[in-house]
Amino acid sequence: MKAKSVSRLKASLMVLAGASSYGILSTFVKLAYEAGFTPSEVTGSQVTLGAAALWLFSMPLWKRVRDISVRDHLKLLGSGVFTGLTGVFYYYSLTALDASFAVLLLFQFTWMGLMLGWVLHGAAPNRFQVTAVAIVLAGTLLASGLLGGLPKHISLYGIGLGLLSAACYTLFMYFSGRVAVKVPALLRSTWMITGAALIVAVIYPPQFLWNGALGQGLWIWGGLLGLFGMIIPSYLYAKGAPYLETGLTAILGSVELPVVILCSALLLKEKTGMLEWIGIALILAGVMVSQRKAAPGAQAEA
């Protein structure tokens, strides 16, 4: 049974914090690339070190593993696959699209989450959630800088990959709130990130384990990315998402983009124009609107 003490507000704050943690990633990824590491090394070390750390943190709960059914184990591993695929599809989309356009495609998860909850559980979005999605997407358009001009080259291949990344992120948020919710959050996130590590290892063979990259400093970037991209968000989503509808979780996840822009401005000294700041304000306004007149007592389904 889920703890009754977790309020809707507390659950929302957990998801917001998890999404904010994801927002920090792009800054560290850029710094890791500047240090000379490849996308496969960065992505592989992120999920591998993140999974290894989670297994260490969850040691006190190892005795509970035998109480988890094989079916739940497989569900959690399968759910984690969507976490890994989100990053893989998004990184591949960046090879065919401008970053601003790729971000806009990724953020389609805001309405995908609402639609998924509606189709699977008949949870029709209320007018505040629909309004929130419209505001968030408008803010994303402004914050992405696309109003300054459309990309010169629009690749259908890249668009497909960008939308796949959005769909995988939506499914990750959905399963975070639905799969094996009786299992302790730390153990759930450990198994999910293990699933992510497995799928990434298939796509990006972990050559960094033997090519000397870890000794050259990759362990630092992999550790930071594992912390902010695997450990913190997966745990917070596992704790908070079961108390929220999938659509609301998706809207709250949109806070990731403002954090991306703020970190880039503060740590990478990237210039942020007035339209981008207006976009950030709109996204935050959309998050606040989504909290209005929320359906009471939303319960997760196992």
Rank of each mutant, 00 (worst) to 15 (best):
F101C: 10
L116G: 00
A99T: 12
Y157C: 02
G158S: 11
A196W: 04
A96W: 07
V119M: 15
V259H: 00
L16V: 13
S7Q: 13
S254K: 02
A123Q: 14
K271T: 14
L49R: 03
Q207T: 13
S79G: 15
G158F: 09
G122Q: 08
A51G: 08
L171F: 14
V15F: 07
A300Q: 09
L171A: 07
G286H: 09
K271Y: 14
V136N: 02
S12T: 11
W55A: 05
K182E: 14
Y92V: 04
S155N: 12
A250S: 15
L225S: 01
L97M: 11
P205N: 05
R188K: 12
T246Q: 08
T246P: 03
N211Q: 09
L13P: 12
V179G: 00
G87N: 14
P125R: 05
T27Q: 09
M115E: 03
E34A: 14
W62E: 03
I159E: 08
A201P: 02
F109R: 00
R127T: 11
K10I: 07
Y157N: 07
G78N: 10
A52F: 14
F128Q: 07
L142T: 03
P258R: 01
A102C: 10
T272Y: 06
A197Q: 07
Y204R: 00
T131H: 05
W221T: 01
S254Y: 05
I261M: 07
G240Q: 09
E276N: 10
W210Q: 01
E41L: 00
L146E: 07
V287T: 06
K271A: 15
P258V: 03
E34L: 15
R64W: 09
Y22A: 02
S5N: 14
V81L: 12
Q129S: 06
A300H: 13
S165F: 11
A265D: 07
S155K: 12
G286T: 11
S234N: 14
L114A: 07
P39T: 04
V70P: 04
Y237R: 00
T43Y: 03
L225K: 00
A32S: 14
G240K: 06
G84L: 10
L142N: 05
A143E: 10
H73C: 09
S234W: 09
A11G: 10
I203P: 11
G145P: 04
L31P: 04
L163A: 11
W277M: 10
V88A: 13
E301K: 13
M1S: 12
